[in-house]
């Protein structure tokens, strides 16, 4: 399905497409790979759908500069399942099994950008589950957050919050 269209992209996105090809929507990833999807899939992606609506359906090639060709197939897969009403606990468990922490975050950003409520809710829960009961150091590493407290500030906070530091899981190695 994927084909390189970097040369055609500019002309496509502003030109009126002929009616026969309007059956499918072309999503162009940030690295210029085209993914052809059914209009029903596009409906799941609020950002894409509003783009189509604004142009009265004349434009069917939508550039998604913030989303890589690595993440887009996952998003499409989820949307396809969602339309088919086949989002089960088993599917979701299989779906995230394939993803490492960085990929989950990238998909989360993609879902946020495309405004896919269901995927966003699901991935928020996945991330929440992955950091639940982990140490503060693990959380910082997970999100790539720098500790901006002075050692004195941190010691004081730790003392205040000492009661919360019981029952924390030992850090397992990051899977990335």
């Amino acid at each position: 399905m994927a084909e390189e269209v970097s040369s055609q992209m500019n002309s496509l996105s502003i030109s009126e497409t002929n009616p026969s090809s309007s059956a499918t929507i072309s999503l162009v990833s940030g690295d210029d790979i085209v993914f052809k999807v059914e209009p029903t899939i596009a409906k799941e992606m609020e950002t894409v759908q509003s783009f189509i609506d604004e142009t009265d359906g004349k434009i069917t090639t939508i550039p998604l500069p913030n989303i890589s060709s690595h993440d887009l197939p996952y998003v499409i897969e989820y949307c396809e399942k969602s339309i088919a009403g086949k989002i089960t606990k088993e599917f979701e468990a299989e779906f995230v099994k394939k993803l490492n922490n960085e990929e989950v975050k990238e998909l989360f950003l993609a879902a946020n950008y495309l405004n896919i409520k269901k995927l966003l809710d699901f991935l928020s829960q996945v991330i929440a589950d992955r950091i639940a009961n982990k140490s503060v150091e693990y959380v910082r590493r997970y999100f790539g957050i720098e500790n901006d407290f002075t050692p004195e500030e941190e010691a004081k906070l730790r003392e205040e919050l000492a009661w919360t530091f019981t029952g924390v899981d030992p850090d397992d190695e990051d899977e990335n």
Binding site: L120, S124, Q125, I127, A128, I131, A132, N133, V136, V139, R140, F143, I145, E146, N147, D148, F149, E154, L157, R158, L161, T164, F165, V168
Partner: peptide
Amino acid sequence: EVLKRIPVKMLVQCKSVSK
């Protein structure tokens, strides 16, 4: 969106992640 799903006890602890 992620944090609202985390148990409250851990949220309190997360105050020491960053400012």
